[in-house]
Amino acid sequence: MKRRQASAAAADPEGPPLVPKDVAAEAAVWITRLHGGHRTPQMEQECRAWQTRSAAHRLAFERCTDTWQDVASLTLAGYATATATRELAGSRRAGRSWTRRSGLAVALVLVASALALQPLKAGDAYDTGVGEQRIVVLRDGTRLSLNTSTRIQVDFAEAQRTVKVERGEALFEVAKDASRPFVVHAAGTEVVATGTAFLVQASPAAKPGDQALAVTLVEGQVVVRSAASEGRLLEKPWVMVPGQRLRLSRSDEAQRPATATRVDRPQMDQVLAWRRGEAHFDNVALLEAVDEMNRYDRVPIVVSGTAGERRVSGVVKTGDNASFAEAMASLHGLVVRNHGDRLELIQP
């Protein structure tokens, strides 16, 4: 009883919000899955692990659990009747109390119904603009974190869950389902998983030698292989282990738009720094750092002359090219020229 009262107090709309919308949506997904027909001990373990991420995750799950228990017999007709009764009563305080309880209940019921009963639609597309990030929770419980300038398409079928990364960067935290592999198509390859976490970055067409694709495995296991429709971009499938990054670069052969270059083990904190709005540079060329910063800002930086050869190290905030340009100018004795649509770094 104390837990329920604490949850209700935390949900008071008069106080500051404690649970982000994306976390609340994920909690609704977990409640739906746990009350579905395919509950397993593994699913329960994964849900407990999800709750340990933060106090907000635990609170969101408690709220959804309380609501599910309170409104097992709630119907939309009952919701409409209660709404009319509340409006006739004209009690502002009672209205707020009812809205907190029944409004949340209806929201959860609608979310649960959509997730549990509605067929998975093919061709759902999600995208982000320059400097924008977005979290998407798919109907199987998979969580996608989309970085700047990203576009993906989702197509779920009975035998396979498919996502196509048309451009950009996405972190996949895949819900386990051994009967339906999770396949990500990007840059002529397929990344195959059942339940794991991995990062995919796909670059648009560019000159030979540029990176076409990077796959970084955070946990679990994935297999990276050539897509059947693209020929043999990879000589063989790569079975990745946690901590590895597989990078493909563009070839100058028309029939082989990408070819495997190398597998390394980057610092995971640096690879995922974009989720905190940061970029990590470790003795990289200024030109390379500028290319990374330009992904997050609509006013790009251009580097003239030999200035791009200067080295950069440190942690910087993304989405603020003006401050970055000024900092680089001060550090390396350069000059910043503001042309309105671009910032230019030049040697004086």
Results as ranks from 00 to 15, higher is better:
Arg4Asp: 15
Gln5Thr: 08
Ser7Cys: 15
Ala8Gly: 06
Glu14Ser: 08
Pro16Met: 07
Glu26Pro: 03
Val29Tyr: 02
Val29Pro: 00
Thr40Ser: 15
Pro41Phe: 10
Ala55Ser: 09
His57Val: 11
Ala60Tyr: 02
Ser73Lys: 15
Ala77Glu: 14
Thr81Pro: 02
Ala82Cys: 06
Ala82Val: 05
Arg86Phe: 01
Gly103Cys: 10
Leu104Val: 07
Leu110Phe: 10
Ser113Arg: 12
Ser113Trp: 05
Ala114Phe: 07
Gln118Phe: 07
Tyr126Glu: 04
Gln133Pro: 00
Ile135Met: 03
Val137Asp: 11
Gln153Trp: 11
Gln153Pro: 01
Val163Lys: 03
Ala170Phe: 06
Leu171Pro: 06
Ala178Tyr: 11
Phe182Asp: 02
Glu190Asn: 10
Val192Asn: 12
Val192Leu: 14
Leu199Asn: 15
Val200Trp: 05
Ala202Val: 00
Ala214Gln: 13
Ala214Phe: 08
Leu217Ser: 06
Ala228Cys: 09
Arg232Lys: 15
Leu234Arg: 06
Leu234Phe: 11
Glu235Ser: 13
Pro237Gln: 14
Gly243Arg: 07
Gly243Thr: 08
Ser251Glu: 08
Thr261Val: 08
Arg265Gly: 03
Gln267Asp: 13
Asp269Ile: 10
Val271Ile: 14
Arg275Cys: 00
Ala279Ile: 06
Ala289Leu: 01
Arg295Cys: 05
Val299Glu: 02
Val303Gln: 02
Thr306Ala: 14
Lys317Thr: 15
His339Met: 09
Asp341Trp: 02
Leu345Tyr: 00
